[in-house]
């Protein structure tokens, strides 16, 4: 079964707590970061809550959007990579192969969602921190770009478990760390090509929208459900 993996984030029930951000960090061990890197905006977190504020006190409207790699069906980053270190795989996941990356940062520039991150410096892990890193995820090195992978390593393990039972991996057997961690249940993940799946149904809902879809035609596979006013 060739799935097309996608995600829906319900901005009505999202409480902005940031658990998805730290769960992603615990799962994928991005660089810890230092104050100097923080000041220069070079701390890498694959998932970020992006604030948008409109108006003047006290007539304010704001939104906090959990933003991760949108795994576009027409990914601008793939079009510009000179070495195919980033490419779209048959299941729709936009992959980042660290060992092919030459660090040119064309993809970092090309991504309209600013979800590709370049390692400007050596990630400073101590030996003890590195020992607690997820063994299923490569540690990145200086000079390569990284981004959200929809926790593809979990798909690899789930696929193997399914193969042991003589079948393909099914929906519900694999979910990224952020989706699993969300305490308000605001994130849904699954196969967009399965019309009966919850993610496919929600992506067709009248509350669903994709960010920058009309402007750029990137066809992101992450849909957001508008807040109910």
């Amino acid at each position: 079964m060739m799935a097309r993996w996608g995600m829906v984030v319900d901005l009505d029930s999202c409480s902005g707590c940031g658990t998805c951000v730290t769960a992603c960090s615990a799962e994928n061990t991005p660089m810890p970061g230092t104050p100097a890197e923080g000041a220069r905006g070079r701390v890498i977190r694959w998932m970020n809550l992006l604030p948008q504020i409109e108006g003047e006190y006290p007539d304010l409207r704001a939104e906090l959007t959990p933003m991760m790699c949108q795994h576009c069906d027409r990914p601008p980053c793939v079009f510009v990579c000179p070495v195919s270190a980033t490419y779209k795989n048959p299941e729709g996941l936009v992959a980042q192969i660290y060992w092919r990356c030459i660090g040119c940062r064309y993809c970092v520039n090309a991504c309209p969602y600013t979800v590709k991150f370049f390692n400007w410096s050596k990630p400073g892990f101590t030996a003890a921190q590195a020992a607690c890193a997820n063994p299923d995820v490569s540690m990145r090195q200086v000079g390569v770009t990284e981004k959200c992978s929809f926790c593809h390593h979990r798909l690899q393990r789930a696929r193997e478990a399914a193969a042991a039972k003589g079948r393909e991996v099914r929906e519900g057997e694999y979910a990224p760390a952020c989706v699993e961690a969300c305490p308000s249940g605001s994130m849904v993940f699954g196969n967009l090509d399965n019309p009966g799946s919850e993610v496919a149904k929600l992506a067709r809902s009248n509350r669903a929208y994709k960010i920058l879809e009309e402007e750029l035609g990137t066809h992101p596979k992450v849909s957001y459900l508008k807040r109910r006013i």
């Binding site: 795989n89 996941l93 992959a95 192969i97 995820v137 490569s138 390593h153 690899q156």
Partner: peptide
């Protein structure tokens, strides 16, 4: 032979 099949 998908890169993601073996690389992570």
């Amino acid at each position: 032979t998908d890169c993601l099949g073996c690389h992570r």
